[in-house]
Design a protein around this nucleic acid. Structure first.
Lengths: 295, 295
DNA sequence: GCCGGTATGGAAAATTTATTTCACCGCCTG
DNA sequence: CAGGCGGTGAAATAAATTTTCCATACCGGC
């Protein structure tokens, strides 16, 4: 059982060795390896029991993993990781302050891609904070109720809104809603939308400048009597005007590139909010026959 | 005697309170207090025995100290310090803060929908901060170069990754790249990917659990000799292994609902970074004006 | 100098955490 | 299809750490 190779001496070594030998590990050990690589903080700081729990493995598997790397047990491996963490911590403390300083003075060199990332992170963070302030609880509640009550959801968003729409379509379906995603393939959006019923809901996502298709379909649907939930950047845009409820989102706009962080965050909130709503058996004891209408 | 006042809730609180009450402590307790203030890392990470040894006191003195501050024992105080230590730096604090954040979410028993939004905002914000820390400039630069050099881009991501993929496809096209979006319509992804050439690049986005289709296509493409840029949550996932370059993203994960905020932020960075790269004629002067805007 | 009361060190008890053991399972091989 | 073999989970065991407890030392006031 002896591992001839010596145990790694530094956290970086450890990481490298795990990567190198990853393929030679058995299934469970690979699972542990993944967790070590993906969540080194966990490994460094938590107890074996907690780690095992999070990684969905047995504590003994972690011990075995450590031993297979040449450690006498799991604890030495943890110590190694923790030391590495501390070292990183010390240097990061400095780097972080420098970065803060740079941000405020902001003479970022053009083309420094790394700085770009920081800029976008900053912008998105602000957008998220803003989202919290501009969207009221009441509206979210209303939106969730609308979604919950709808027989079938129609979801639409083109161009820049398409990712948000597809996220909603995918996630809401996961939660068990019947979802019809108007993906516009073949230019058939209008036709696809024609089947909407009175007790269905169209979720339309659109930002300035509004895609013609989206506007047209939304208006048609509204006229047909179905409800419309709009996610938009304006309360008076063409989409908003014909909607039952509008959720206004102002995404960050860094260097003329609009982000979608806030929109997706809102979408996520709607999805999980709906999940809660459906899970809790309301006034009447409803049978808990699971949310899995259509997978 | 135990103090009736409540224990501090944050590491900063703790520090402040210790300072404020320092004079009221007895000799030995002051000694402990000094050590807590001077070596917070020790307190946070080492065991009581080790700390006691270093501080030249008895373990029981530390316990008494913690209790005199309102903690039930020394361990909770340690946890507080550890959280605080980590919170200083996003990279390190991320996991821990998310954990803490998750427990507080669990306390929101009935899921007030309005509160949910705030929670997701928080979660996404953490993920963004973490992104900045974990993704290195170097990798972003490399990624942008890869994209820039590619003749044609193939972009693929299914299920949860689909929004990211569609965003990239749309935006990169706006920037003027030739983009082929493997949308998987009609289950034709494999066929669509077959046309890839040696000097093309596949951008594959995939998170655990990896969509079978994505894995298959990525492997095929890699074997065919084209380059692959992976955006994934693991460095050892099936996608990562066959990729030229992997950008690792850890999106926030609350109640099993993963966000995409960080992924999209990264995508955005790539797009704008590419825009810069293409705009400036090779190595000449850097002028920072226009970015080509997405509509 | 004696008598409360409080603080302290040390060590036992309790608890938590890490490791080992072992029976079982699936797989491959002969 | 039997038999070995490595891998695995669960539970026993061992180790460690934390907490409690108590005898004693210390410090004031009488």
């Amino acid at each position: 059982m002896s591992e001839q190779d010596l145990a790694p001496q530094t956290a970086e070594d450890l990481r490298a060795i795990i990567l190198a030998r990853y393929d030679s590990f058995s299934g469970r050990l690979q699972q542990v390896a993944r967790h070590v690589l993906d969540h080194p903080d966990d490994l460094a700081l938590e107890t074996l029991t907690v780690i095992a729990d999070r990684a969905k493995v047995q504590p003994s598997a972690i011990v075995r993993f450590a031993k297979s790397l040449g450690f006498p047990g799991a604890s030495p491996m943890q110590r190694l990781l923790r030391d590495g963490l501390l070292a990183k911590h010390a240097t990061l403390g400095y780097g972080e302050r420098v970065r803060r300083f740079n941000t405020s003075v902001n003479r970022t060199v053009d083309g420094e891609a790394g700085a770009l990332l920081a800029e976008f992170v900053e912008g998105d963070t602000l957008a998220l904070q803003n989202l919290r302030q501009t969207v009221g609880k009441a509206d979210i509640d209303k939106a969730i109720k609308l979604i919950n009550q709808a027989e079938t959801l129609y979801i639409m968003g083109f161009r820049r809104s398409f990712p948000v729409a597809s996220y909603l379509a995918y996630s809401l379906q996961q939660v068990g809603k019947r979802v019809f995603f108007l993906d516009g393939v073949g230019g058939l959006a209008r036709q696809q939308a024609r089947t909407i019923q009175q007790n269905d809901l169209l979720i339309a996502i659109s930002y300035h400048p509004y895609a013609e298709e989206t506007v047209a379909v939304t208006e048609a649907v509204s006229t047909a009597g179905a409800k419309v939930l709009a996610i938009s950047d304006s309360l008076v845009g063409p989409i908003a005007k014909v909607s039952t409820l509008v959720l206004q989102v102002k995404d960050s706009d860094v260097r003329n590139f609009r982000s979608l962080a806030a929109s997706l965050c809102l979408a996520q909130t709607l999805v999980v909010g709906l999940a809660f709503e459906r899970e809790r058996p309301p006034v009447v004891r409803k049978r808990r026959d699971k949310v899995r209408a259509s997978a």
